[in-house]
Computed example of a mutant assay.
Amino acid sequence: MVYLILFVAIVAEVVATSALKAAEGFTRPLPSIIVVVGYAIAFYCLSLTLRTLPVGIAYALWSGVGIVLVAGIGAVLYGQKLDLAAIVGLGLIIAGVLVVNLLSKSVSH
């Protein structure tokens, strides 16, 4: 259940971060509301996961997966180009998330 809540936190953060660009400095109301609500949900859900997961592990998973998803959304929705170095770096982030989640004894399964 803790990973489901963490997944909700990640999705809410990714939606909020993606809407942040569309909010144009909080000058557009609907994207601005999505940003505020998304971050509120993200931080609330992240705080719930900290009852079970160590803070370093939860944050590493939350931020790592979020970075990769936001980069993908930036490429698809905003036409941002990812060069080879960016793709390799994102691959390393994914590898790091997998190592932490699958191999680390710090994660309670």
Rank of each mutant, 00 (worst) to 15 (best):
Y3P: 00
L4M: 13
L4V: 14
L4G: 15
I5R: 07
L6M: 08
L6K: 00
L6Q: 00
F7I: 14
V8G: 07
V8M: 13
V8Q: 10
A9P: 03
I10Q: 12
I10E: 04
I10L: 13
I10T: 13
V11M: 09
A12E: 00
E13V: 10
E13H: 14
V14T: 08
V14L: 10
V14G: 01
V14I: 12
V15N: 04
V15T: 08
V15M: 11
V15C: 08
V15Y: 02
A16S: 13
A16K: 06
T17H: 06
S18G: 14
S18R: 05
A19Y: 08
A19D: 06
L20Q: 11
L20V: 10
K21F: 09
K21H: 13
K21M: 00
K21N: 11
A22L: 14
A22S: 14
A23Q: 03
A23L: 09
E24V: 00
E24C: 06
G25A: 11
G25I: 04
F26P: 07
F26G: 05
F26V: 03
T27E: 07
R28N: 14
R28Y: 07
R28F: 03
R28S: 01
L30H: 11
P31R: 06
P31H: 10
P31G: 04
S32M: 01
S32V: 07
I33A: 15
I34F: 12
I34P: 11
V35K: 05
V35L: 10
V35S: 02
V36A: 11
V36Y: 04
V37T: 11
V37P: 00
G38R: 02
G38P: 09
G38L: 00
Y39T: 01
Y39V: 05
A40L: 15
A40D: 01
A40K: 04
A40N: 06
I41S: 03
I41P: 05
I41R: 08
A42V: 00
A42H: 08
F43L: 12
F43V: 06
F43A: 00
L46W: 04
L46E: 03
L46F: 09
S47F: 12
L48R: 15
T49E: 00
T49L: 06
L50H: 07
R51P: 01
R51E: 10
R51W: 04
T52W: 05
T52S: 12
L53E: 00
L53W: 00
P54W: 06
P54F: 04
P54L: 01
V55M: 15
V55E: 13
G56Q: 02
I57F: 09
A58G: 04
A58V: 02
Y59E: 02
Y59T: 07
A60S: 14
A60P: 07
A60T: 13
A60E: 04
L61E: 01
W62N: 08
W62H: 14
S63F: 01
S63A: 15
S63I: 14
G64C: 01
G64N: 05
G64F: 03
V65I: 14
G66Q: 04
G66I: 05
I67R: 13
I67H: 11
I67Q: 13
V68K: 11
L69N: 09
L69Y: 03
L69Q: 11
L69E: 10
L69A: 14
V70F: 08
V70E: 00
V70T: 13
